[in-house]
Structures are given as structure tokens and as C-alpha cells.
Simulated scan of single mutants.
Amino acid sequence: MIQNNFTCSDNLSLINETKYSDEEYLIRVKLAATYRMIAHLGWDELIYNHLTARIPGTDYMLLNAFGMRFDEVTATSLVAIDMSGKIIDAGSTDLGINKTGYVIHGAIHRARPDILSTMHIHQEDSVAVACYKDGLLPISQNSFIIGDISYHQYEGISINAEEQQRIIKSLGPVNKNLILRNHGILSCGNCIEEAFFNLYQFVKACEIQVKMLSMVGGDVSKLDVPAKEIRDFSTRTAASFTAQGNGKKEWKCYYRIVEKLDDSFKK
């Protein structure tokens, strides 16, 4: 049913003229906008990588149609699949999905009901850190903000459903940030805004580490690592800020950029 009068509690300027409920349309718009944000930041990779969101009250998740650039994604082009990977709603294209999106993201959505959104990218510095034996080092405030990091060993391109249980085990029951060794990074959140905020801090931490290691010639003994109690204090403080808004202010500040540039993601 087309709904023209849509009052959005998130103070976004939206008119729902789609077949979707207001609640699903809002999730679709937020996710499509975040695809545009990632493209604007230069963290996309042709037609690859995935950002997903669960449709509240269902066992369906949304992800990008396989063939669209991130800057082309719209609310109605997103594909809805169930937790077995079956397409429930193909969206406005006939492109289907990339199976790796289901293998990685479907595993997490099925096992962690606390997670509404997952975001996986291959940004260059984050891949470099994923290839670094010591992983992400606790050297920047950004690395403290995101807290504990989980690691998953590389098993090749993720197309085998058997890997899902190992991905779930690697992430663990509470962590929301995962380094996929030799591959990339993944961040999660109890909403799209939190997942984006975690991903942003994750990438920044990786960028800082790559620059810092280049400055010291790879000699980690030259790095200034704050005491653990200071790092833990920063993590707890950042978590208290996130608990108040789940990254919503940060997400909205970037939403205003992509909306001003091109608001076609709402369609």
C-alpha cells in the first residue's frame, strides 16, 4: 500500500511512496543512505562488499543487489533474503545477490539477534591490518573506542555455508568488530547508526596504524602504547556515549552530506 503521509521519528525528510511499511521503508532508506556514505568515503570496491540490516520483527535481512555500485543503491533496490539465503523480495532489479553476502552476514544475523546491522568492507588500510600478524594495535584513541576485536582466519572466498559456524565462533557472543584475516573488516551494531559508527572508528584506527608503522619502519618498540587501565577507561567512556545515542548523531551528520549531494537513495 502506498503511504504518502509518513512522519519519521528520526527527523529525516521522507515520503513513503513504496509498497513497504513505514518501518521497513525507514530501514531501507537508512541502509541505502549508508551505502552512499561508504561510497562517498571511498571505501567501496566496484560491486563488492556488503552492508546489511535486519527488517524488524522478521527473519529477513536486506543487502545490495549484486551488480550495483554503492553509489547506485536505493531503498527499493535492496534485496530481502531469509536466514537460509532464499530471496524473499528481489527489489527493483533482477540482479540477485552475491552468495558471500549471505555466508558472512547471514551467519551473524542468525546467531546474534542483538545485531540489527552488519557492515563489511575491504578498505586498503583495514586489509593491510588484517594481513598484519599482530592485527590491530592499541595505539590510537580510535582503537580504544571500538573496544575488543575478534579475528577470523582466512578460508578463501566465503562461499561455503560450512564456514558460517566458524565465523560466528570467531565473532563471539558480545563483540561487534571482526577482522577477517587477509580479507577485510566487519562491524556490527544494534542499529544501522551504531554499525556505521563502529566501522568508521575501525577504519580510522587502521589508517592511523598503517601510517604509524610506516613512520617507525615497522619497529613496534617505538610505538607509545597507553597503559591498559587508560585504554579500558577510554573504551568504557566511549561505550557510555554510544549507549546514549548508538552513533545516531554521527550517522546523521553524514546523512546530511549524502542527502544534499543526491537524495535518490530514498527511491
Rank of each mutant, 00 (worst) to 15 (best):
Ile149Glu: 04
Met119Thr: 06
Ser214Met: 12
Ser170Asn: 10
Gln3Ala: 14
Gln141Leu: 09
Ile108Tyr: 09
Ser234Leu: 12
Met37Phe: 12
Gly184Pro: 02
Asn198Arg: 01
Leu213Pro: 07
Ile27Met: 03
Phe6Leu: 15
Leu51His: 06
Thr18Asp: 12
Tyr20Gly: 07
Leu178Ala: 00
Phe144Asp: 10
His183Pro: 00
Glu207Cys: 01
Thr74Met: 04
Ser77Ala: 08
Leu31Ser: 08
Ala161Glu: 14
Ala107Gly: 07
Val73Ser: 01
Lys267Phe: 11
Thr74Asp: 07
Phe233Arg: 13
Leu63Trp: 07
Thr237Ala: 11
Ile185Trp: 00
Ala205Met: 01
Leu63Gly: 02
Asp224His: 15
Leu31His: 03
Leu41Tyr: 03
Glu259Lys: 01
Ile257Leu: 09
Ala33Glu: 02
Gly218Lys: 06
Lys228Gly: 12
Gln201Cys: 08
Asn198Ser: 05
His40Ile: 11
Cys188Ile: 04
Ile15Lys: 14
Ala243Thr: 13
Ala111Arg: 03
Glu193Met: 03
Tyr35His: 07
Ser126Tyr: 01
Tyr20Trp: 10
Gln209Asn: 08
Arg28Asn: 04
Leu171Cys: 06
Ser21Gln: 12
Gly67Cys: 00
Pro56Arg: 09
Gly147Leu: 04
Asn4Val: 14
Lys260Val: 09
Lys260Ala: 05
Met119Ser: 03
Asp59Trp: 08
Val127Arg: 03
Tyr25Pro: 00
Thr76Cys: 15
Asp44Trp: 02
Asn98Gly: 07
Thr237Asn: 15
Ser234Phe: 15
Glu155Gly: 05
Gly67Met: 12
Leu137Cys: 03
Asn49Asp: 05
Leu213Tyr: 05
Leu41Gln: 10
Arg236Ser: 12
Leu171Met: 02
Thr76Ala: 11
Asn142Met: 13
Ser13Thr: 10
Lys228Tyr: 12
Gln201Arg: 10
Met212Gly: 10
His120Ala: 06
Ser150Ile: 06
Ser234Thr: 14
Pro113Glu: 06
Arg36Tyr: 07
Cys253Pro: 11
Met37Val: 13
Tyr48Ile: 00
Ser140Glu: 07
Asn177Arg: 02
Gly106Leu: 03
Met1Ile: 11
Lys30Tyr: 09
Ile108Gly: 01
Asp94Phe: 13
Phe70Asp: 01
Ile88Tyr: 00
Thr242His: 15
Asp232Val: 07
Lys19Glu: 11
Glu259Gln: 10
His122Leu: 05
Met68Glu: 12
Met215His: 14
Ala205Val: 06
Thr237Tyr: 10
Asp224Leu: 15
Tyr154Phe: 08
Arg181Ala: 08
Thr18Met: 09
Thr93Asn: 05
Phe202Gly: 06
Asp262Gly: 02
His120Lys: 04
Asp94Ala: 13
